[in-house]
Write a protein that binds this DNA or RNA. Structure first.
Length: 376
RNA sequence: GUGGGUGUAGCUCAGCUGGUUAGAGUACCAGGUUGUGGCCCUGGGGGUCAUCGGUUCGAAACCGAUCACCCACC
């Protein structure tokens, strides 16, 4: 399903087949948590900004509108009229970041909904059943994402339990497929590596989950409190232990600089709320670095957000106009800013892919990393 | 016209019986935000305390006059 077509150092240029089309990697997945891109973008807009894979969230869609409704409308693809690949996050992260009163046991997690406070239980089987109803092409394992730093003993306990949960996820998906009641018969399960910032736990866990021979692997539990240098150190430990013929997904990362560094370390898939969230706050990406469009100096600026950008927004609107929309709290301002930032990220990935194909990724990395992230 | 009330940051208001450099919220200016609660956090600039005079060692505060606005009654 995953085919490497070119490498440049550790950077990989690949093609990944899903039940809803082919993905050119490295790729950035566009985040539509509740089956919608925040800021008012729909499936047509996703095409316009160059999105290849849409990412939705199990926890949020389980709470509202509920997976049965989504399934009855043809899964996420039919529900939101997106015919491309979809990945669903398992809800593990949200159970720990949003829900209150949670209690973790070997079975799973009991918690209160952040919407109405009602008691909910979610374990590996529940998460997979929900994701099956959502009909995503890639279902993620139900895991616990511990904050960094956390005590070694707890991280060890947690990531061993997450491994057992992964086995249960795999078995549940097999049962559902065997029963023949799938919204998406081509749905696959990816495993997630955990282990905090411990190289030993990370390596042991990666070896264990690699042995399960899953169609894809993610590195989770990063960008959750540790320094950027620690994050790169952990990737450097885990990546050599990941099966080379399977896609690698660095969850929740990151800045353009983080992504370039991730690609340089052999990562193929990324997702992050940052471009959309920053867009909503008027922080926009340009070829020369990030600008804050709320700044007064742009109040009468006739230039587009990024003068060298080819996105639909930059071809049409001035900084002054988009800034005004943001200040006036017009929803159009959010929409235009999100479109620009997502286009920027998707375009960055296209440039990365071309650079790898042309064997000049190293130069590309040197040239742009510093502009995108001063911490590099 | 008579009686009462209110004037403090762009806006809404705190500021006790007089006591260091007059505060808050909001707005404004600028940072932050990594498997998304359009949220939140952090810093900054900004005031002849309506005006004029008086009492006092010391007044945004007490007294008087003036001006503006509000309410009630004529």
């Amino acid at each position: 399903m995953f085919k490497l077509i070119e490498t440049d150092g550790r950077a990989r240029r690949g093609i990944f087949e899903t039940a809803h089309g082919t993905v050119q990697t490295p790729v950035f997945m566009n985040v539509g948590t509740k089956a919608a891109i925040k800021g008012g973008l729909d499936a047509f807009d996703l095409k316009a900004v160059g999105c290849q894979v849409e990412l939705s969230n199990t926890y949020h869609l389980h709470l509202r509108p509920g997976e049965d409704i989504v399934a009855s409308l043809g899964g996420l693809h039919g529900f939101m009229n997106w015919d491309g690949p979809v990945l669903t996050d398992s809800g593990g992260f949200q159970v720990f970041s949003l829900a209150t009163l949670r209690k973790i046991t070997e079975e799973g997690v009991s918690f209160s909904s952040h919407i109405d406070g009602r008691k909910i239980f979610m374990g590996p089987e529940e998460s997979i059943r929900i994701q099956s109803s959502l009909g995503s092409d890639i279902a993620m394992a139900f895991d616990e994402c511990v904050q960094n730093p956390s005590p070694y003993e707890y991280v060890k306990l947690s990531c061993e339990r997450t491994y057992r949960w992964l086995v249960r996820c795999r078995d549940e998906l097999s049962r559902i497929k065997a029963a023949g009641r799938c919204v998406n018969p081509g749905q696959m399960l990816w495993g997630i590596n955990q282990g905090g910032v411990s190289e030993e736990l990370r390596a042991d866990n990666m070896k264990a989950i690699a042995a399960l021979d899953l169609p894809g692997y993610a590195i989770g539990g990063l960008a959750v409190g540790e320094s950027t240098e620690e994050m790169y150190r952990i990737i450097d430990v885990v990546e050599p232990l990941m099966p080379p013929d399977r896609p690698r997904y660095l969850m929740g990362v990151g800045t353009p600089g983080n992504i370039i560094e991730g690609v340089a370390r052999g990562i193929d898939f990324f997702d992050c709320v940052l471009p959309a969230r920053n867009a909503r706050h008027g922080h926009l990406y340009t070829r020369e670095g990030r600008i804050n469009l709320n700044n007064q100096k742009y109040a009468a600026d006739p230039l587009p957000i990024d003068p060298v950008c080819g996105c639909p927004v930059c071809r049409t609107h001035s900084r002054a106009y988009v800034r005004h929309l943001l200040r006036a709290e017009e929803v159009l301002g959010l929409r235009l800013c999100v479109m620009h930032n997502l286009w920027f990220y998707n375009n960055l990935m296209a440039e990365i892919r071309t650079a790898i194909e042309e064997n000049r990724f190293c130069r590309f990395r040197e040239e742009y990393s510093e502009k995108f992230d001063k911490r590099l």
